[in-house]
């Protein structure tokens, strides 16, 4: 058996809770590097002057969003039982980051980013909403063939990126939105852009990612 066979690839699914709501993607990456160092697991580091833990996040989550379903892969130099890994990661995690599951992944699997297909989100409103109004706005949006927008000076059509969009009734007068957006390399729908089309700002809502769908 050569050394390469001992290297293990681990996939973690985790919650990014409210206390990490304003920690952006790059900061989450650094947060994970430090979490891995604290965990005491035999983490695989890059070579060179500034060794960095090797890790791979599935999909960037915009600043201000929370999530129940974030995923990342990291690599270890030696195998460890999954339970032990979960325990080590959990005790090294900062407030707001909850390890949900840990599994071993084949070394030859494609990278997480390239497997991404779609993301699901739940949107709750800070102020009371009318269910009817929400439904109207949704129907209008879904009826369109093209929703033309620009992102970074490039125009694109938002409509095909919306795979699903629905109103969900929680209480008699409490509503939230559910949406599934395409998240493939080069064509990723952003919930804040859908919300903007419906007339909502990021100060009106709390967006939670609930699922990452891999292809």
């Amino acid at each position: 058996m050569n050394e390469q066979d001992l290297i293990t690839r681990i996939r973690v699914t985790y919650t990014k809770g409210e206390s990490l709501r304003f920690t952006g993607h790059l900061d989450i990456q650094r947060l994970w590097e430090r979490l891995l160092r604290r965990s005491g697991l035999p983490i695989r580091y890059s070579q060179g002057f500034h060794p960095r833990a090797r890790l791979n996040l599935a999909s960037a989550l915009p600043l201000g969003f929370i999530s129940d379903a974030e995923m990342l892969d990291f690599w270890m130099d030696k195998p460890r039982p999954v339970d032990e890994i979960k325990q080590a990661l959990s005790s090294a995690a900062p407030p707001g980051l909850i390890i949900q599951s840990v599994e071993g992944i084949s070394m030859s699997d494609k990278s997480l980013q390239s497997q991404m297909h779609a993301s699901e989100y739940e949107i709750t409103f800070f102020d009371p909403q009318s269910g009817e109004k929400l439904q109207e706005k949704i129907s209008e949006l879904l009826a369109a063939d093209e929703i033309s927008r620009t992102r970074r000076n490039k125009s694109y059509n938002l409509r095909p990126l919306i795979l699903d969009l629905a109103v969900i009734q929680l209480e008699s007068d409490e509503w939230e939105l559910g949406m599934r957006l395409l998240a493939e390399p080069g064509q990723t729908g952003r919930p804040d852009e859908v919300l903007e089309e419906m007339g909502y700002q990021n100060t009106d809502v709390l967006v939670k990612r609930t699922k990452l769908m891999l292809s």
Partner: peptide
């Protein structure tokens, strides 16, 4: 504070909650 944080730069400065 939560309502105004999305409108300012680096809102993570104002929330605490660190390890």
């Amino acid at each position: 504070v939560e309502r105004i944080l999305p409108t300012v730069a680096k809102p993570g400065r104002y929330v605490g909650g660190e390890l």
